[in-house]
Simulated scan of single mutants.
Amino acid sequence: MFQTTILNEVKNIGIGLHKGSAINITLSPLDANSGVVFYRSDLNKYYKANYENVINTQMATVIGDKDGFISTIEHLMSALHAYGIDNILISIDANEVPVFDGSSLAFCDMLERAQITKLSARKQVYVLKKEVKVEENAKFALLSATNEPSYDFTINFNHKLIAKQDYKFTFNKVNFIKEIASARTFGFLKDVQALKSKGLALGGSLENAIVLNDDKILNPEGLRFENEFVRHKILDAIGDLYMLGKPVFANYKAYASSHDLNHKLTLKMLENPSSYELVTLDSNSKELLKALS
């Protein structure tokens, strides 16, 4: 299996979740072994999307340095992970990726329009050999060895419309598009109001998030899935794990995990070289190739 990029440059415009202003985004092809690279056109700064450049994980996955940052990259990273994109340039003219409808659908549409093309270099993947786990009180996230990568997530919110939800799905592009890509981010009205009072979430609306008050879902169209909340948590986790810089061939399992815990999981995996193997895919990697196709 060879590395990939996109065939055509594609563009879109969307609203930023926090600042509420229009943001231009362009996806462009990149050469082999370049990775996923973000470009802040307003700053003329490049940031590689990997664990080393993560500077904040409180409300989103944020990359950057002392000169600037790019926030809310996880929904785009999730789509790139699922589509198997190894190399791509993402140009934006603001400090956050457009939120669009709060899911990965717009990014999937851009990738479909761009089309995927193979490069001459072989693809590399992390293959888990031993379990890696991080815990914080009752919360945890873990990676384990597998022959068929999957994501298994449980959430438990003190809200009658969410409560305890769990979902497991086999990770591949087809299943991602069908089961995960359209699951939207969500928040509580009181929290949104508090954030807006601090100059954050200014672009947040019923157009780009599921919003709940104490009694009901405020979006007139309702949910896309009965368990859309936990599906979106899986969407986030897929994007967060792609901050490893390469796909990870593993089972992911979590209870009440977050961007922060997912980031700590990637760091712990890399701190334990005996827990994984970096495999270059070739004609001898038949089982891996089958699971990744």
Rank of each mutant, 00 (worst) to 15 (best):
N227H: 04
E228R: 06
E228Y: 06
F229W: 03
V230M: 10
V230D: 06
R231I: 11
R231A: 13
H232S: 15
H232D: 13
H232T: 13
K233I: 03
K233P: 08
I234Q: 06
D236G: 03
D236W: 09
A237N: 05
A237G: 07
A237H: 09
I238M: 15
I238H: 10
G239Q: 10
G239S: 12
G239I: 12
G239E: 09
G239W: 12
G239A: 12
G239F: 10
D240A: 04
D240F: 02
D240C: 04
L241Q: 00
L241K: 01
L241E: 00
Y242Q: 06
Y242P: 02
L244G: 01
L244E: 00
G245I: 03
K246G: 04
K246Q: 08
K246V: 12
P247C: 09
P247K: 04
P247M: 06
P247V: 05
V248G: 03
V248Q: 00
F249C: 07
F249S: 03
F249P: 09
N251Q: 11
N251G: 06
N251L: 10
Y252M: 07
Y252W: 11
Y252L: 15
K253R: 09
K253A: 02
A254M: 10
A254F: 13
A254D: 11
Y255D: 04
Y255T: 02
Y255S: 01
A256V: 08
A256H: 13
S257G: 09
S257R: 07
S258V: 07
S258L: 07
H259I: 00
H259R: 01
H259T: 00
H259K: 04
D260A: 13
L261H: 00
L261I: 07
H263G: 14
K264F: 14
K264E: 15
L265C: 04
T266E: 01
T266A: 15
T266H: 00
L267V: 11
L267Y: 00
K268F: 06
K268A: 11
K268R: 09
K268W: 02
M269Q: 03
M269H: 08
L270V: 05
L270Y: 02
L270I: 10
L270W: 05
N272I: 11
N272Q: 12
N272C: 10
N272H: 07
N272E: 15
P273D: 07
P273V: 08
